[in-house]
Amino acid sequence: MTDQEGGQDGTFAARLRAARARQGLAGPRRGLAGPGIDTPGGNGPAPDAPGQDEPGRPGPDQTDPGRSIPGRGSAVEERAAKRPASQGALSGTPWGIGMRVGTELVSAMVVALAIGWALDRWLGTKPVLLAVFVLLGGLAGVANVWRAFAPRR
């Protein structure tokens, strides 16, 4: 953030206060600031599932780049910086997690079964590769699940 004028907390009201204090203008706050207006506009979080709160969403006190007068050029960087790398691709309700884990396991198994069956048919090693690929499919399913919930770099 290259905002040299704003206060520590980025809310506009705080900045306004800080700027006023610096200028010695302790006038009444104009109707500009206040949390009431800070509705997420076009870029706010859209209706996710309740309880499916995603980490990394900026809170309601996010500074709308359009509303901060000081440091206007840095608005874009601010917005980018405020976005921590989203971690753990999808978290959510227990039911959602269970469903996701199940799907990952089942789909890996389906693919493994298909590959094993096809290879067996092709190479004429009827049950052997199928068995091997069932094991591999289980492992791949676990890998899928791990990948889905491990924090992303």
């Binding site: 789909s107 890996a108 693919v111 493994a112 690929f133 591999l136 791949a140 890998a143 899928n144 990948r147």
Partner: peptide, 9 residues
């Protein structure tokens, strides 16, 4: 397998 399971899942 993991890669191919993506479209399936």
């Amino acid at each position: 397998i993991s890669y191919l399971s993506r479209p399936v899942s």
